[in-house]
């Protein structure tokens, strides 16, 4: 017996509109989304900075003084200021997402978003104070 039919696999092709590479520049909410995603670069920068600081500390007082010297340069100040703005943006957007990530229901009613987000801010203030206390005075 001979195979006479050639079956081709069903291969769907969708209609897809081409999306511009700069789709996020068109609307403020999209732009904000990209800014939020870009905050991760500054999070990574912070880790690199901490690693340099720790490395300098392990090398001795002279290295620590040298990195402090660098931190006083206008370039470093500007970079750290921008990084602070982005990481604050990360913090705020992250806290405000918690009500979406874990909606809390009490008695069948959904708690308002701010009641779920608010404890994060309280914890943030407390943690920041503890960290500052340890670094400055501890």
């Amino acid at each position: 017996m001979k195979e006479t039919h050639n079956y081709t696999l069903y291969h769907p092709k969708w209609y897809r509109e081409r999306v511009s590479t700069y789709w996020w520049a068109r609307q403020w909410s999209y732009f904000r989304f990209i800014l939020r995603e870009l905050s991760s670069i500054f999070v990574a920068y912070f880790v690199v900075l901490i690693l340099f600081l720790l490395h300098a500390l392990s090398q001795g007082p002279e290295s620590y003084a040298a990195i402090q010297e660098w931190l006083r340069t206008p370039f470093a100040i500007t970079l750290n200021f921008i990084s602070l703005l982005f990481t604050l943006f990360h913090t705020i957007t992250w806290f405000n997402l918690t009500p979406r990530a874990m909606p809390v229901r009490i008695g069948g009613k959904r708690l308002p978003d701010w009641m779920i987000a608010a404890p994060n801010y309280v914890a943030w203030v407390v943690i920041s104070a503890i960290v500052a206390w340890f670094v400055i005075g501890g």
């Binding site: 931190l71 100040i77 990481t87 990360h90 500052a132």
Partner: peptide, 19 residues
């Protein structure tokens, strides 16, 4: 951990101490 800890440390080591 980034949300809770990075801003305060960046503020201290990046701005408050150098300035």
């Amino acid at each position: 951990i980034a949300a809770f800890m990075i801003p305060i440390l960046l503020f201290l080591f990046g701005l408050a101490f150098p300035l």
